[in-house]
Design a protein around this nucleic acid. Sequence first.
DNA 1: CTAGGGTTATGG
DNA 2: CCATAACCCTAG
Length: 220
Amino acid sequence: MEQPEITYCSPEMEQTGLFWMPMQQAEQGLDGLLGDLELSLENGTACRLQMENYRARDDDAVLILKLLEEPRDEADLDEWLSGGLHPSLCHQQMECRKSGRRGARKRRTSPWDTLFFRDIPSQRSGGYIRRNNSHWTSKEVKLLVQGVSKFGVGRWSQLKKNYFKTSVRTAVNLKDKWRNLLRAYKGNVQKYTLLELEPPLVEQIRKLGAKHPYPKQRHS
DNA sequence: CTAGGGTTATGG
DNA sequence: CCATAACCCTAG
């Protein structure tokens, strides 16, 4: 059963390259302010509602990015952060609560979370903060494959610079994703894959994978 | 910076 | 429950 494809980013937001990222609830710095906007995806209404939610939050994101570009007083920013949330957001927040059972959880938090709260001390037992847990979109994968075919495997920093300049994905993320792609599409079919990719794309992945094997193999 | 082993969250 | 995806750690 496939979940409906949802467009998380408004065009403006997409341009910024910042995407909504799921995070562990305890780590959501703005959790108290925004509330968690989890929604059931079970019916169309909830789905639509969710998109509106994201839309509203996108507006906020774009706004705050503007604030960043033309820096003002910190107090100004503080005030905006603590109170001046997008009106449509408060409205939506109550609306979405009533949806019934939860479907797949799409925990997301706003981009400014990582911009402003990345240094908040963490209580995690692991000792580190997990910043981004979002699943890759097929768009991103396409970009990655494109990048790998241009730069080859191993020049992740270059690839990041040229193809994921503004994305939240780091060079290491790209590398890891590539590894996962190889694992996922090499040889036997997996039991399941979260993201269905177009056959041509898969074909390209396989080809590139054959060229730069992982894990390293000492000959053919 | 990258490779690769480890760890944690996700979701069938 | 457990395989997979996403993420972290770190030697070299």
